[in-house]
Design a protein around this nucleic acid. Structure first.
Lengths: 198, 198
DNA sequence: ACGCTAGCCAACCAACTGGTTGGTAGTCAA
DNA sequence: TTGACTACCAACCAGTTGGTTGGCTAGCGT
């Protein structure tokens, strides 16, 4: 074969990402990953040590990636939220990986350091956009945004049940998109009002 | 043994609920369910036919249950949302089962009929509480509420990362609780403003 | 040219999976 | 009591799993 370690590793990582996003760490099959990568599964153990460590590596990579893709929030918070929503809709991998991790994981969190750092930066950007003093003040907003932007990829069946078959249409998706943006905007301004009233 | 079919069935159902909520349909182990129920696993096949059908039965039961537990929304929408949030926090089973279903399921939705009915009723109650004309208008709000109320049980690791270790404390949870209620309230009023402006 | 290291794989393994089977024993009607 | 029916279980089965092993070979330094 091509005998190119870094290419093999990358191929494995890419295949693992598809598999893990689809089935989670527990449901993923090592053989399928190897097959999709066009490599012997032994290489997984050679390079990553174990299935779980491979999962961590994939998550790391994706989290890193998202930093580049979604720009910083601006003044128009509804637009930003709509952008995030679009991103998750088109590229559900990140959300799915995070949800798998949250649902299957035993509470331990690999790569804590770098991930905390990542969110601190996001919170700071958010604080600036919202005109808040500290990153901690912005955190709950970021969390809410993630929730409303991700929900329809996490429980698509519930979306169909609650919102009707309409979400499978262009028009239905647009309506939800708009709703999410406006909802977020209203949520932010109202919470800020409440807080400043103190 | 006790030789009481309905009791055996109930025991199996209860054990399955714990197992499925913890690991999902795919990750659940039939042997563990049987063992926890104190019954031979053959009974699962005798009563329910298959692992997947047992999952559906559990989901049915839980969805039915939640109808009783969470009361109807009133005028104070923030209070209602806080109540829902508390419910999910204390009893994560329903959310977890729905998320497993959404993440693992192939799009097919068992018991569609009764579930659609369930959400139609919820949407109607919501429409009434919010003073909206139709159930369809209320649906997106219900969906948003579910998202923000469930998110911290779906991705607890992200919650800890974004919001800081504080959420593991009484105080931190209270702050998030309040934030969610206010956020929802603001979201509702702002979206309604936008809509009436047309 | 030669040896040595590292990338790679086919074949293998023990453990575990969902699901089945043959048979035992309570229970109820006659 | 007998016979039939149903709840039940231990043992079993074939297929699959994550992970390992022994050996082959490409490519580099010498």
């Amino acid at each position: 074969m091509s005998r190119d370690p870094s290419a093999t590793k990358a191929s494995l990582l890419a295949a693992a990402r598809v598999e893990f996003a689809a089935h989670g760490a527990a449901g993923a099959r090592v053989d399928r990953i190897a097959e999709r990568a066009g490599v012997s599964k032994e290489r997984i153990y050679g390079y990553f040590g174990s299935k779980d460590k491979l999962f961590d590596a994939v998550l790391d990579e994706v989290v890193e990636e998202v930093m580049e893709f979604v720009g910083a929030p601006g003044k128009d918070i509804a637009a930003y939220v709509r952008r995030v929503h679009d991103f998750h809709q088109q590229q559900p991998d990140l959300v799915r990986l995070l949800v798998w991790e949250g649902m299957q994981g035993g509470g331990s969190c690999p790569n804590r350091r770098s991930r905390v750092e990542h969110y601190v930066r996001k919170n700071q950007a958010m604080a600036e956009a919202l005109g808040l003093e500290t990153a901690e003040d912005a955190a709950p907003f970021l969390f809410m945004f993630m929730a409303i932007c991700s929900w329809s990829v996490v429980v698509p069946q519930v979306a169909r049940l609650v919102l009707g078959e309409g979400i499978d249409t262009e028009d239905g998706r647009d309506r939800l998109r708009k709703h999410i943006g406006d909802f977020a905007e209203g949520g932010v301004s109202h919470v800020r009002e409440q807080q400043s009233r103190v």
